[in-house]
Amino acid sequence: MYSVTQYRAKRFGLKLVMQLFCAGVAATCLFPLFWMAASSLKTQETVFSDFSLLPSNPQWLNYVNAWTKGGFGVYFLNSIFYSTVVVVGIVLISSLAAYAFARLRFPGRQFFFILFLATMMIPIPGAFIALYVLLNKLGLINTHWGYILPQINGGLALSIFLLKTFFEKLPKDLEDSARIDGCTKWGIYWHLAMPLAKPAIAVVVIFNVLAVWNEYLLAMLVLTDKELMPLQRGLMVFQGAHITQYPLLMAGMTISVIPIVVVYLLMQRYIIEGITAGAIKG
């Protein structure tokens, strides 16, 4: 039989173990980021000999060099542009499709939904050559659209899946009330379903912003003009077949991570809400 003290001690012990476990997991997640930031302040000679997280002689110029040598000025704007257009495209198309799959009754509804899901099994790199041939025939090689459209296409399946699950959970009574008040199907989608789906849309936005921001292989395939390339191309300048300029690479990566962290922090509340609201439940 436990006394209150014993019970409290046990609870405290369990809590401590849990906290230590969580701290351990957090440390393993954060350590690479710290290492990246620390390495960005070292020299090529000290990056693998000085293992301190706070370098004694920080090389702040690495950031300037990474920005100028990597041509980040142009690439940064390009990445912001691509991320915005692709994510807006995905949210618009996937929300319309998801709402239709969730609420409208039409022949082949289930079949087409599964067909969409099946595209999740085909990674873009697996279809590179076929995609290149298609884009070439459409005259889209080395154009913004040639890079944007495949990414919108690639992001649709998961986004439709997430949003459909969310829309299905919306109470039908709300829609019935809106219909009685004279709302059209479009009106219900735009004025009712979309505002309620903010948490799920936040999840879709963050997933896709991450994917587009970090995309590189498709850019290499489709684009040839440096002026059209995204940010990741700038990072590649520091990573040669034989030589990798680690401090500049790490400085460039630190710069490239900042916008993503900002987007995540801005949408954090919605993301957690979206996940807990069942946005990613099967």
Partner: peptide, 8 residues
């Protein structure tokens, strides 16, 4: 670059 992307 990298060379794999170049080859593709």
């Amino acid at each position: 670059a990298p060379s794999e992307a170049y080859s593709q």
